[in-house]
Write a protein that binds this DNA or RNA. Structure first.
Length: 599
RNA sequence: CGGGGCGUAGCGCAGCCUGGAUAGCGCGUUAGACUGGGGGUCUAAAGGUCGCCGGUUCAAAUCCGGCCGCCCCGACCA
């Protein structure tokens, strides 16, 4: 391909509004352009990379035995109502009514396709002999993000690979799940990502029913914890921590102060109260009133910690958990929101506490009266709860003890979620009547798993973790073109001819090659080549030609080297072939070990 | 949806506080010349509803009100 014949609008300056590297570089390199918040056009170069990511995913899905199909983005709203997800998705689901003749149809744009695939399965799968089967598609998803951001990392329209397994038994599901898990590892490896599979929030099935594939990156939206000691890794939404030796945890050995009612006018947040009373947030114990399946409960969390509603929901064995509305809080506590406490609740509600509440003595708690708190609250003197009401109810924090090993500690880091595998169970098959007959002619709900990969995020995550001050550093597997041929001066006939010839030979040999045939200064070409980040650059110049030489340089290496003009196409192909055999991260590591990139 | 920021030529910005004449600068673009190994030089030119609507004023890019859009933080995110 000739540079002049495709469309590569690179930019010298950072566009206003772009902040994170992937967004800045994708815009500057002419990969994408914004249409509106959360919607981007993929320009020719960006599309090539997107297609390559897509193809890697497709090949590995096929290899894992999944079968490809394509479902529509449009779906009838009734399907979403049957599974209750019209409500669960709420505003995120994009739906609308269309007029067709004298009637109206209510349609939704698919944010995911469990309903559609399960509906299909219900009509075609009826026997255990048809199982197991895994379907997948690569298709555009729509979600009305409240706040699209970070370039292509969070958009309201995005390309997703979604796969769905149907199995006859949990054992079969585990096998299907493992196949997908392994395929994901191969995909992200091939994409050159430095990824980490982590345990993720898994809903009703529990256990190891869900993993997210994360790429640690400074600008990632997710936070994961990782134990270097034993390798335990989990999303903070999910991560557990090691518990105390005994329950209830013994109170600290401190002199107990009397319970004292203090005025805290207008101070209802942890920050306000701790500032007003001049104490640390860890001195405070906050009391959260939840509705667990509609039943009010009080949950105690230390002031400097954050409640984890998933843990609380699981601990209580509840299906649904939500913060109680103000009316309920006022009824339970007898005070406005912000002054709830374990001492003197107006209505007796079950009291639960996170383990770390035990580490605080003489705590500051809400007094269940407007504008008042207690100081010096202690258990069991002022409030108490049975041993079985203590649990791991908060979000883990950096430095917490690892739940898996006895000596490790959890370290947090931000990460980009590029994939998610999930054992669904029978939630959708049951709601949509997707059943099969087993060998004994018994009807069962199909057992499902679902598996998603954000294709656009593969590109963004790669760029976030693979760039320098000059631009993107693509692996061969994702680069829009593997090779850029860069004639320094196209007006020089010998240079132009040699470059064109090399380009033609490589193209004919099936190499993805771009010839920068623009009549611009060498500096412009070098800078654009670095910005876009083509893995291999072949420079054709007068000086080299006189000695029968071309200059080649890997984007991730600092040094270039010369190769003979004679047989250059073959040598370039050989270089590519050798580089393809080595994992991208390893190539980058090797280069880093050799020299600082001067570029 | 709460908090903050921004909106002036294709892109990046100045001007606004303290209202005033033809709205500037850099890059890019067009034409020509020189140049030719890391965004080069010179000459000439094109390109603007100053986000939109309304108000104040003799006069609004500038002051006031409303709205829209974009970005960031938070809430939300099967």
């Amino acid at each position: 391909m000739l540079w002049s014949r495709t469309f590569i609008p690179t930019m010298k300056e950072t566009p206003e509004g772009a902040e994170i590297p992937s967004h800045v570089l994708m815009l500057r390199a002419g990969l994408i352009t914004q249409v509106m918040a959360g919607a981007y056009t993929y320009l020719p170069l960006g599309l090539r990379s997107l297609r390559k990511a897509e193809q890697i995913v497709r090949e590995e899905m096929d290899r894992a035995g999944a079968v490809e199909l394509l479902m529509p983005a449009l779906s009838p709203m009734s399907l979403w109502e049957r599974t209750g997800r019209a409500r669960d998705f709420g505003n995120v689901l994009i739906h609308f009514e269309l007029v067709r003749g004298n009637r109206k149809v209510h349609l939704a744009l698919g944010p995911t396709h469990e309903e559609i695939i399960t509906d299909m399965a219900s009509r075609f799968i009826s026997s255990y002999r048809q199982l197991p089967v895994t379907f997948y598609q690569i298709q555009t998803k729509f979600r009305n993000e409240e706040r699209p951001r970070f370039g292509v990392l969070r958009t309201s329209e995005f390309l997703m690979k979604d796969a769905y397994s149907f199995d006859a038994s949990l054992e079969q599901l585990n096998e299907s799940y493992q196949k997908m898990y392994d395929a994901y590892c191969r995909i992200f490896e091939r994409a050159g990502l430095d990824y980490l599979p982590v345990e993720a929030e898994s809903g009703p099935i529990g256990g190891d029913a869900s993993h997210e594939f994360m790429v640690p990156a400074q600008h990632g939206e997710d936070v994961l914890v990782h134990c270097r000691q034993c390798g335990y890794a989990a999303n903070t939404e999910r991560a557990a921590r090691r518990g105390p030796q005994q329950l209830p945890p013994p109170p600290p050995q401190e002199e107990l102060q009397p319970l004292e009612l203090v005025d805290t006018p207008g101070a209802s947040s942890i920050e306000q109260v701790s500032r007003l009373l001049g104490c640390q947030p860890s001195q405070l114990v906050k009391t959260l009133i939840y509705l667990a399946d509609g039943r009010p409960v009080a949950v105690l969390i230390r002031g400097d910690h954050e409640a984890n509603e998933n843990k609380i929901r699981r601990f209580l064995g509840a299906e649904r958990l939500e913060l109680a509305p103000p009316a309920v809080i006022e009824q339970v506590t007898g005070a406005p929101v912000g002054f709830a406490g374990p001492v003197g609740l107006r209505e007796p509600v079950p009291l639960y506490a996170d383990w770390d509440v035990a580490t605080t003595s003489n705590a500051v708690v809400g007094a269940n009266q407007a504008d008042k708190h207690y100081r010096g609250a202690n258990r069991p003197r002022d409030f108490d709860l049975p041993p079985e009401h203590w649990g791991d109810l908060r979000v883990v924090a950096d430095g917490d003890p690892c739940p898996r090993c006895s000596s490790g500690h959890l370290r947090t880091s931000h990460a980009i979620e590029v994939g998610h595998v999930f054992k669904l169970g029978t939630k959708y098959s049951r709601a949509l009547g997707a059943r099969f007959n087993d060998a004994d002619e018994q009807l069962h709900d199909l057992i499902m798993g679902c598996y998603g990969i954000g294709i656009n995020r593969i590109l963004a995550a790669l760029i976030e973790t693979s760039h320098d001050r000059h631009g993107i550093i693509w692996p061969l597997s994702l680069a829009p073109y593997e090779v850029v041929v860069l004639p320094l001066n196209v007006k020089d006939e010998a240079v132009g001819r040699a470059a064109q010839q090399l380009h033609d030979q490589l193209e004919q040999a099936g190499v993805e090659v771009l010839l920068d045939d623009r009549d611009v200064r060498a500096g412009v070409k070098f800078n654009d080549a670095d910005l876009i980040g083509f893995p291999l650059r072949v420079t054709v110049g007068q000086r080299g030609l006189k000695q029968g030489q071309l200059e080649v340089k890997w984007r991730w290496e600092g040094q270039s080297r010369n190769i003979p003009l004679e047989g250059a196409a073959e040598q370039v192909q050989q270089m590519l072939e050798e580089a393809r055999q080595i994992p991208f991260r390893q190539l980058v590591e090797q280069a880093r070990g050799q020299a600082e990139p001067a570029s």
